[in-house]
Design a protein around this nucleic acid. Structure first.
Lengths: 209, 209
DNA sequence: TATTATACTGTATGTATATTCAGTATAATA
DNA sequence: TATTATACTGAATATACATACAGTATAATA
């Protein structure tokens, strides 16, 4: 990335501000108004310079076809890299986990919040994982994956019930789900008889008090 | 906000996806391509319906003048409202909590992440609050305050040691700090003899696995 | 010294785009 | 039953917009 000139930086800023305020990029004419230019070509040449230097991209032929290219590592990694993640509440039996009727609300969270990426939050019911520090109403960050190892905490579905437990697979056709609470018993699943599905893996936890 | 129809929802989604992918909103014609419409007026009427129902705003006369209106309270308050919060690690005896030598790193977190605002994260050492679901190496969100009630979990400093415990004040000159783990004993503090200071209150927790 | 990049004004133009008008059809509401 | 909302096709048009071309001027390179 080449160096930006002060004037080009002003134009770039003015584009960013315009997008933030209106929700869509400016036209050449809009930039002229903001910057005090009297010719649309003043904006045009600045845009071409910014494109050449890699700060923006310009969609050919399209009106308002300017988009900001974000190369700033710091910025990319944090400030503007927040995403909405759904909180999945009580999962209705038989319905897909992320069906809209199960989504309690969406929360804003940096996508790199946990070292492992994740797909959604699950609100914990019950105390079967108490000794692992997972309490009722905690939010578990779940990564949708089938790459599970012995000892991982998994979010699994047995028949129509969703549960959070330690995972262990002592044989090819058998899975044991172990709670972290002496008041609960291990769940043994015979993969040949029972409908068993791994929704994902526990990668993090959030609790609000 | 009135109810959105399934078809209008599809159009709204398609606009959001377009913006996410290109950086600028679609034209009527673009929406037609995405949705399979054959007349630009199909897009137009959907846009007007979405505008009427408060999901988007349309800038008159401007090309691509669509902007998404975000009525989701959580999102509005947070999207760009992320802040850096320090993680306080091992607190050196006698030094101020937030002194730079104690700061492990800074993490990016929306400032309204927990319902209560907070000032920093503290990395938990030991298992004295295990039964409250607070485990070793968890990050506790701490709000600097002296407004503490019986039963709150506090971050307190006794002489030169920082500890996290349940707070109870049975008399004016006495404070009892209770662990949430049978292996630990209550700590009784005589406020007349001992150097006791409340750093803040526990308002939330984050764990990474 | 010639060349290139920056930083503009001013005019012109094809087309990209919003937007209106005229229809057709179905389902929901009053 | 009349009315309104939804969900489209199809055509027409004024204008919003990108973009090229012709200049002027200054400062920085090669």
């Amino acid at each position: 990335m080449k160096d930006i000139t002060p004037q080009q930086n002003k134009v770039l800023d003015c584009i960013k501000v315009y997008i933030k305020e209106t929700g869509f990029p400016p036209t050449r004419s809009d930039i002229c108004k903001e910057m005090g230019f009297k010719s649309p070509n003043s904006a045009e040449t600045h845009l071409r310079a910014l494109e050449k230097k890699g700060f923006i991209s310009i969609a050919s032929g399209a009106s308002r076809g300017i988009s900001i290219i974000n190369n700033d590592i710091k910025e990319e990694a944090s400030s503007y890299d927040s995403n909405e993640y759904p909180i999945v509440g009580l999962v209705a039996a038989g319905s897909p986990t992320l069906a809209s009727e199960n989504i309690e609300k969406q929360v804003n969270c940096p996508s790199n919040f946990f070292s492992t990426s994740f797909d959604y939050f699950l609100r914990v019911k019950g105390l079967s994982m108490k000794d692992a520090g997972i309490m009722e109403d905690d939010l578990i960050a779940v990564k949708k994956t089938h790459d599970i190892r012995n000892g991982d905490i998994v979010i699994a579905r047995i028949e129509d019930e969703v549960t959070v437990k330690y995972f262990r697979k002592p044989a090819d056709d058998m899975v044991i789900l172990e709670p972290a609470n002496d008041d609960f018993n291990d769940i043994e699943i015979n993969l040949r008889n029972e409908d068993f599905f791994i929704e994902g893996k526990y990668v993090g936890l959030i609790r609000e008090n």
